[in-house]
Structures are given as C-alpha cells and as structure tokens.
Amino acid sequence: MADSTPPPPADDQSPPPPPPQSHTGSPTDFLKGVVGKRVIVRLTSGVDYRGTTSLLSCLDGYMNIALEQTEEHVNGVVTNRYGDAFIRGNNVLYISAAEAL
C-alpha cells in the first residue's frame, strides 16, 4: 500500500499553519472571545500582524480586523510598528490567539 502522505511544500520560508485548537464553538465565538486580547493575524502574503483586537466585524462577507498596538513581522523580524491598523478580511489567512508576545 502506497504512503498517502503529501510531500513537504517547496517553499520552506513560511512556517506551517498553527495546530488545530481543541476548543468547541463557532468561528464567531472564537472572534468574540479575542476582542481586547492579543492576536496574530497571518496574511496570505505570509506577513504577520501582532496586536490587540479593538473591533472585529463582518462587512460584505469579509472579516475586517482593527488592531491596536500593532507590530508587522516579516520572516519573524519586526519591520514596522503602528498605533492602529486596519486589515481587510480578504487578505487574512488565519487569526490566532497569542498566548504571550
């Protein structure tokens, strides 16, 4: 029987996605639970934004995110710091709760 494990991705630059969380509930429940807390937002470009969520809302089917005290991370290095940042939802790959930054 052949091994059905897919080969590793060719691009070793980006880290793997975060492991699945062992919580129950909907994505909406998760998002409501992280308002006012530190999160990591990974964009489809591979850039991470780390900050405190100030508002999470759905507009026209997109999940737009407003962050406060935001840091931009490219390849694990802080490249910019912003007081406030607005990220359009169609650019978001995932949102992860940050334990401690």
Rank of each mutant, 00 (worst) to 15 (best):
P7E: 05
G33Y: 05
S22T: 13
S14P: 03
P7G: 02
E72S: 11
M1R: 10
V41P: 14
V39Q: 04
T70R: 00
P18N: 05
A85M: 14
R50M: 06
K37Y: 03
G89A: 10
R50H: 04
K32V: 09
K37N: 10
R88G: 06
P7V: 08
P7T: 05
N64E: 08
P20G: 02
M63T: 13
P19S: 04
P9S: 07
R81N: 13
Y49R: 10
P17Q: 01
T28Q: 11
P17S: 04
V41Q: 10
D11M: 02
A85N: 07
L56I: 15
V47I: 15
R88K: 12
H73C: 07
N80T: 07
Y49W: 15
P18L: 09
P27T: 01
N75D: 14
P19G: 06
A100T: 09
T24Q: 09
Q13D: 08
T24I: 13
P17K: 02
N64G: 08
D11E: 09
V92M: 03
Q13L: 06
T70I: 06
L101S: 12
D60N: 14
G61E: 05
P20C: 00
Y62I: 08
L55H: 12
T79I: 14
E72M: 15
T28C: 00
N80E: 12
G76T: 01
G36M: 07
M63L: 13
S26G: 05
D12G: 01
L67D: 00
L101G: 05
L55N: 10
A98L: 15
Y94N: 06
G46E: 01
Y62E: 12
V35T: 14
L43M: 12
L31R: 10
V47R: 06
S45H: 05
A98Y: 01
A98R: 08
T52W: 00
L67K: 02
Y62A: 13
K37C: 04
E99M: 13
P7C: 02
G89E: 06
E99S: 08
N80I: 01
S54F: 02
R88S: 07
N64S: 07
L55Q: 10
A98P: 09
T44S: 02
G46K: 01
V39H: 09
G46S: 04
A66Y: 08
P27N: 11
V92H: 06
V39M: 11
T28N: 06
D60Q: 15
F30Y: 09
V39W: 02
Q21P: 15
V77T: 07
S57E: 13
L101M: 06
L67Y: 03
P16L: 09
Q13C: 01
M1Y: 07
P16V: 00
P20H: 03
E99K: 12
I40R: 15
Q21Y: 10
G36I: 05
V74W: 04
L93F: 02
D11T: 01
T44W: 00
I65F: 04
D11W: 01
A2E: 13
R81Q: 15
G76N: 04
G83K: 14
S22F: 11
L67P: 00
I40G: 03
Y82W: 15
Y62C: 11
V35R: 14
L67I: 03
I65M: 10
S4D: 06
N91L: 14
T24S: 14
V92G: 07
D60T: 13
S4Y: 10
L93I: 00
